[in-house]
């Protein structure tokens, strides 16, 4: 028990930023059918904005810069959707994916130009710097805060998707784009909105990990956050937000447990899990078997 609590909390805390990034990715995939590779760039820029805007150690200042990072990245996301993805939509998903890749390179390059190559760090907000004593085990306050934030974001997304008219339209478009168009849904506007939300989440996730990680351009494709996010949406099933949530938290806990039990294996758990899923359930937890996965069998 004493060992279990910190493992689970640390695992969930690690899974939360991954889930926040992955939920945006999976939403964008559901609506636009593009795996938005540029998300790594959004994530990196979110973290970098915090290094610039954060003034002082107070919790309010930190919260404000997290929001600023989210909004700033959201603007970049909207501009890139209109400028890059809209013209490419007709050309098919491979070309869009390459467009996303080009955007990724350009965003990372621009970030390097603005913030330089030196790694940056951000201090923990003062109020969250300590640790709690839970049943004799020490649990970091920041980790607990991450768990709470993750809960809020998951609940917010759930309400957004099920209780608002935008959410209904998003689900309609990702279910059947042509039918949604025929019913008079402005699909382009839904695409832009979902891209804005996804980018906002990526910016927030980047901002949230700023105190935990050293921030340089390798963050855009780091094996701690971005690659697991891509793996999580494959394991959870492309387009499924609940799948992304379950996969992110489960994999976070697994990774954190492995780190304690068998440190030499840590870092590999994501890759092992995705390999197992591909062997036995290529469509992921909640995905439906697509034409291509059916063919593969």
């Amino acid at each position: 028990m004493n060992d279990l609590v910190p493992i689970v909390v640390a695992g969930i805390a690690q899974g939360v930023p991954i889930f926040v990034v992955a939920s945006g990715l999976t939403l964008i995939y559901g609506v636009l059918h593009v795996l938005n590779f540029a998300h790594g760039g959004f994530f990196l820029i979110g973290a970098l904005i915090v290094t610039t805007t954060l003034q002082g150690p107070s919790l309010a200042a930190f919260g404000l810069s997290v929001l600023l990072a989210g909004v700033g990245v959201m603007l970049i996301g909207v501009v890139s959707e209109v400028a890059v993805f809209r013209p490419l939509y007709k050309a098919g998903s491979t070309v869009s994916f390459l467009g996303a890749f080009a955007l990724f390179l350009a965003l990372v390059g621009i970030a390097l130009l603005i913030w330089g190559t030196n790694p940056r760090t951000v201090a923990y907000p003062e109020a969250l710097n300590g640790s709690f004593d839970v049943g004799g085990a020490r649990v970091g306050q920041y980790d607990l805060a991450l768990v709470a934030v993750g809960g809020v974001i998951a609940a917010g997304l759930y309400l957004l998707l099920t209780r608002t008219s935008l959410g209904t339209r998003v689900r309609a478009v990702s279910h059947d784009r042509t039918m949604a168009l025929a019913l008079g849904i402005r699909v382009q506007r839904v695409s832009t909105s979902i891209f804005a939300i996804g980018a906002f989440l990526a910016g927030v996730a980047g901002a949230l990990i700023a105190p935990v990680s050293s921030i340089d351009e390798s963050l855009a494709l780091s094996s701690d956050y971005m690659l697991p996010a891509f793996i999580v949406i494959i394991v959870g099933g492309l387009g499924s937000v609940p799948g992304a949530l379950i996969a992110a938290l489960a994999l976070g806990v697994l990774e954190s447990a492995l780190f304690r039990v068998a440190p030499s294996l840590s870092g590999f758990s994501y890759y092992l899990v995705v390999a197992l899923f591909l062997m036995f359930r290529p469509q992921g937890i909640f995905g439906s078997p697509s034409r291509s996965t059916q063919m593969a069998r």
Binding site: T94, Y271, L278, T293
Partner: peptide
């Protein structure tokens, strides 16, 4: 043989994962 059970963007991500695993192995 494994990765071709998926296609398109998922397949691309898996190839990326392969390269990252090898990269990690050089350190481990």
């Amino acid at each position: 043989l494994f990765a071709l059970r998926t296609s398109g963007a998922e397949f691309a991500i898996l190839t990326l994962v392969l390269a990252q695993v090898l990269w990690l192995l050089t350190y481990r």
